[in-house]
Each structure stands twice: as structure tokens, then as C-alpha cells.
């Protein structure tokens, strides 16, 4: 299946703004992040506080819905999904 990943703000400093990746059936957000962190040096440090624990500012939307309210890193992926990675700005 084909997944489109869009990265925003400081994630763009360590990875491409947009990338399309192929995965076998059964892939999850964890599969996707494993693939991305293997591809982009420095991404793991930006995203993860500890193995398997995302930093609190890492927001991941699957087709617009936050994976926090789906199944977190175990959120399943489907062909054509768009995954957005963004660290929300907080200042004013």
C-alpha cells in the first residue's frame, strides 16, 4: 500500500516535506515511523523521548484524525492514507 507523509515545521529540518512510501498490508504508524527514522538521520531524536514513546509535541494525523484518539503507534494504515506530522506552535 502507498502512504503519503507530510512533515511540517521543524520536522522539515530533518526530513523531506513530503514523501510517498510503500508498505505491506498490516503496517501501522509504528511501521511507518521505523521506516522514516531509518531513512532520516536525526529524526528519531526529534520524535522520540524514549524507544516507543513519542515526544509530547509530536502530533500525528491520519487523514486528519489524531492517532492519539485512534490507537496511537498501533494505528493501522490503509492504502492511500495521508499522514501529517507536526509539532504545534504554542507561542503568541
Amino acid at each position: 500500500m502507498k502512504i503519503t507523509v507530510k512533515a511540517f515545521a521543524m520536522f522539515r529540518e530533518v526530513m523531506d516535506m513530503q514523501i510517498e512510501l510503500e508498505f505491506p498490508d498490516g503496517a501501522t504508524v509504528r511501521t511507518l515511523l521505523t521506516s522514516l527514522t531509518a531513512r532520516y538521520e536525526g529524526l528519531s531524536e526529534v520524535m522520540f523521548a524514549a524507544p516507543d514513546t513519542l515526544r509530547d509535541f509530536v502530533n500525528i494525523l491520519r487523514n486528519g484524525r489524531n492517532i492519539h484518539f485512534i490507537a496511537g503507534l498501533d494505528t493501522p494504515l490503509d492504502n492511500g492514507d495521508i499522514i501529517a506530522l507536526f509539532p504545534p506552535a504554542a507561542g503568541g
Binding site: K6, F8, A9, R12, M17, L61, R65, H68, F69, I82
Partner: peptide, 23 residues
């Protein structure tokens, strides 16, 4: 139902779909 993300460093902006979470 869209979140506009502004990137002044690159002169790029994009609005991405956002949907509600029943949970």
C-alpha cells in the same frame, strides 16, 4: 476542518484536512 500550517522559513503554507475525534 482544515489546519493551515505556515512555514515562513521556506515561504510555504499548506492547509491539511482535520477531522473530529468521537473519542
Amino acid at each position: 476542518n482544515r489546519l493551515l500550517l505556515w512555514d515562513g522559513l521556506r515561504g510555504e503554507s499548506e492547509s491539511i484536512q482535520i477531522v473530529n475525534s468521537p473519542e
